[in-house]
Write a protein that binds this DNA or RNA. Structure first.
Lengths: 214, 214
DNA sequence: TAAGTTAGTAAAATATGGAAACAATCCCTA
DNA sequence: TAGGGATTGTTTCCATATTTTACTAACTTA
């Protein structure tokens, strides 16, 4: 467990972005300046320095940041070296897509189980994993020490699935169902609602002067 | 084109949420109070009244809001009655999932075309639509007056696809590729990066005291 | 050693958002 | 028809978060 030096949420949201930007830098580059990174991430350079200063003293004045040190530190701070295990519940189209999605593994997350209660799906394979019934959830969570639950069920089942996941000791939930999940102490919940994203876009579509943020 | 009375971004983000909450209300309920809606949306009741006041004078003092009026006004403000047409580019697992996703149509968006440049995919069907090559994009955009482009390609193709979409007159882009797209005046871009969402979760996983926001 | 670069950080400026509070308005009932 | 209770619309204030500025410290190169 890390100590809780508080990093502002706005900064936390930019850390994965910085990591992504570093991947765009040519492999023979060894260092990078805050202004160059700022340009890639499309933020102010002082912002970059300030954000990175939360991770410690990483750069060298007059020189810049060593790319590999920076990458390591970002990964460390974000917990990407912990090898968190995740399960996906609800293996419809979206769940399957998430199961196949390479970006998770690439960042150090391991999908260790797929779950669905549809008898027609149980025991079939997706992305090299066998779909199991929810009754097997607890067993899996113990065996693999699952920390993250990804919910891709229809809205009406999301809350009960969330409850089950939390009951199994899962401490973080990424929710794709279009419902607002109950808040539970010590459980982190992030929701991605595809339809809401499109609705927000739609609002700004009629108002080209305004600029959507974030 | 709507006049540009400025609604704060934080409010715009809550409007689809209110709409979602209204769907949870029993059908024989005819009205709803700000406090009840606040409870469903998990926000302060003053917040609800303030947010809704941006849409005009919808409620009745001493009574509350008429649900169907409120719903209509939310849909109107969000542009959900405009019948925007959208295309999806990149019909991999995620693109297919998005094509099947019912939440879009339900909210008034019509997916009118699927595009991919993989010869193995072209002319095959997904969700009742035939996958077309990108060279057909312009034709479709004109024919259907496409306003929204959804990008679900690998990161390396996302920017060129975005350029093409914008060239075809698309004014809003929902981007699922893990790259930062170039900003273009009068084009709205929203990005959803699945891996970044998980990374943010991962940060807070090690720090149970802190609470992730938004 | 001097000039040029660049990180780290304190502090100011800005923006935003949330909560409280209250007057205005409506419904209901006696 | 008057009064009490309920609930919105809106103003105002407060708190806080975020961004930017500006400056100092430290390094590199010539």
């Amino acid at each position: 467990m890390k100590e809780n030096k508080k990093i502002p949420p706005a900064t936390v949201k930019r850390l994965p972005l910085y990591l992504q930007c570093l991947d765009q830098v040519s492999d023979n580059e060894i260092g990078i300046s805050s202004s160059k990174l700022a340009e890639l991430a499309k933020v102010n350079d002082a912002q970059v320095r300030r954000d990175l200063s939360y991770l410690g003293t990483l750069g060298t004045r007059g020189v810049g940041y060593d790319i590999s040190t920076l990458r390591n530190q970002l990964q460390l701070e974000l917990g990407l070296v912990e090898g968190w295990s995740a399960v996906i519940v609800g293996i419809g189209n979206l769940g399957s897509a998430l199961a196949h999605y390479g970006g998770f593994r690439e960042k150090g997350f391991g999908i260790v189980g797929l779950f669905d209660d549809d008898p027609k799906k149980i025991n079939s394979q997706v992305a090299g994993l066998v779909i199991k019934p929810l009754s097997d959830l607890e067993k899996y969570c113990e065996k693999f020490n699952v920390a993250i639950g990804i919910i891709a069920t229809p809205g009406e089942h999301a809350q009960s699935v969330a409850d089950k996941l939390i009951g199994c000791g899962v401490r973080s939930i990424l929710n794709f169902a279009p419902v607002l999940l109950k808040n539970v102490p010590n459980v982190q919940i992030r929701s991605v609602d595809l339809s809401q994203e499109l609705q927000i876009l739609s609002y700004y579509l009629d108002r080209p002067i305004l600029k959507a943020v974030d």
